[in-house]
Design a protein around this nucleic acid. Sequence first.
DNA 1: ACCGTCTGGTTGACATGGGAACCAAGTGCC
DNA 2: GGCACTTGGTTCCCATGTCAACCAGACGGT
Lengths: 156, 156
Amino acid sequence: MTEPRWLDEREQRAWRSLMKMQDGLSEFLERHLRNRCGLSGADYQVLAHLSEAPEGRLRSFELGRLLHWEKSRLSQHLGRMQNRGLVSRERCLADQRGAVVAITPRGSDLIKIAAPQHVADVRDVLIDHLTATEMAMLVTIGDKVAERLAALEHEH
Amino acid sequence: MTEPRWLDEREQRAWRSLMKMQDGLSEFLERHLRNRCGLSGADYQVLAHLSEAPEGRLRSFELGRLLHWEKSRLSQHLGRMQNRGLVSRERCLADQRGAVVAITPRGSDLIKIAAPQHVADVRDVLIDHLTATEMAMLVTIGDKVAERLAALEHEH
DNA sequence: ACCGTCTGGTTGACATGGGAACCAAGTGCC
DNA sequence: GGCACTTGGTTCCCATGTCAACCAGACGGT
């Protein structure tokens, strides 16, 4: 194997900066969600997707696809959220195997309170400090990564 | 409370792009580390820090500060890594409370194999596709976020 | 109708992460 | 010296995530 191409100073800074931002953002946002609403990031995402779905209901596997979650993870998490009264589950009429997940009034109230605060937080630590150019750049970079990941996925 | 300022189209795209990149990158990098070397991302970071430290040894709390880990997490994780023979722990001579963590030959061998592959992966999915401008932008954005988080931390 | 296969979901075992209680060793102050 | 307070670590308990095994209902070919 040839000598590996280590990251130079500039590359190193970019990579570390991204990692640190990742950690900082998720730590901050999760902590605030938890403290103010008793919701984890995972809870929030589930409720967000459900509340945007027609009638606040989704097939389990649809939800899983949207979140990119393992099916076991989804099942376990929905079980816990059901115990807390945030969602309910019924058997699907069309497909007797399937389950339909619905947001409960309690879950709906919670997400209505959580969402604006969450968005405010996102603005406060990130979006409101970025220029139009910087936002565009984020999209560009994200697209490049997504494209590369998809390519690697494809070639096995 | 006034009407919340939701994210507009452009802001939304930037935010989602960043989140998706976060998920995609960490999933990819963790999977490869795990498959090729049997290391989790957490293992890797511990070994990386230790291998860069003088004599491959660090005070436990130093390591914790570098990683921004809860002390209980660090303790538990080091225990598991010790069981796998990747690190060793001794009482600190200078401070009888403290522990000194040292990388073992086995841990050292592993990180020497893992590091170049990991760097190659980072290049492959991110760094090698970025322009100098984009890398600089990442640093700028990261600094802004860090600064804002520090400010919030400070004002309680 | 029957059988092999696929699909949607659940379950159990286990690895990991966070928080509080706890313990032992330093430190500061009298 | 003695005593309160801090610091470094471990432990316990619980929430969360992954993986593999399992189960029941659909589906396709015969």
